[in-house]
Computed example of a mutant assay.
Amino acid sequence: MSSTNTSPEELYAVADFCLIPMGLETPSVGPQIAECQRVLKKSGLEYHLHGYGTNLEGPWSKVMDAIKACHEAVHAMGTPRIATDIRIGTRVDKEISQGGNAGKVSRVEDILAKDSK
């Protein structure tokens, strides 16, 4: 159960999180989400922005550190409050060291492709 750049005991985390800036003067949160994406790019982890959040994956501790860094960066922009919803999946029945989210999507797409045959 080893993962890239982790100790053998560290879990590989496949996460989906939605950072929600609150207390802003405008309802638009685009600049804050863009800043979080900049933080994730610097993290070196796999990530993918989608309409209501971001998929993020890597060693558990690095995923948590990246989400914390997003909070810090968005607070530094003057955001008084942030709420974050996080879903995290791990597994120990097979080794995953990258591509966890992509593998899940590919598996479902393969199943759906059989529908058209």
Score class of each variant (00 low, 15 high):
residue 53 G to M: 04
residue 61 S to P: 01
residue 82 I to F: 10
residue 66 A to G: 07
residue 67 I to K: 06
residue 83 A to E: 12
residue 35 E to W: 07
residue 53 G to W: 12
residue 58 G to Y: 13
residue 98 Q to F: 15
residue 101 N to D: 15
residue 101 N to R: 11
residue 102 A to C: 02
residue 74 V to S: 06
residue 74 V to L: 02
residue 88 I to S: 02
residue 42 K to N: 11
residue 85 D to Q: 04
residue 39 V to W: 06
residue 56 L to P: 03
residue 44 G to H: 12
residue 85 D to R: 14
residue 74 V to E: 10
residue 89 G to P: 06
residue 46 E to I: 02
residue 84 T to Q: 03
residue 72 E to F: 03
residue 77 M to P: 04
residue 37 Q to R: 12
residue 38 R to P: 00
residue 56 L to C: 02
residue 39 V to I: 03
residue 94 K to L: 09
residue 68 K to Q: 10
residue 95 E to I: 12
residue 41 K to T: 14
residue 55 N to Y: 10
residue 80 P to D: 15
residue 82 I to H: 14
residue 89 G to M: 12
residue 65 D to I: 00
residue 80 P to K: 15
residue 37 Q to V: 03
residue 51 G to H: 01
residue 82 I to R: 10
residue 63 V to T: 13
residue 44 G to L: 08
residue 68 K to I: 01
residue 53 G to V: 02
residue 104 K to N: 15
residue 62 K to P: 00
residue 88 I to Y: 04
residue 61 S to M: 09
residue 45 L to P: 01
residue 82 I to W: 15
residue 47 Y to K: 00
residue 55 N to M: 06
residue 40 L to K: 08
residue 78 G to R: 10
residue 99 G to Q: 09
residue 38 R to V: 03
residue 64 M to P: 00
residue 86 I to A: 02
residue 88 I to N: 09
residue 68 K to C: 05
residue 65 D to M: 05
residue 63 V to P: 08
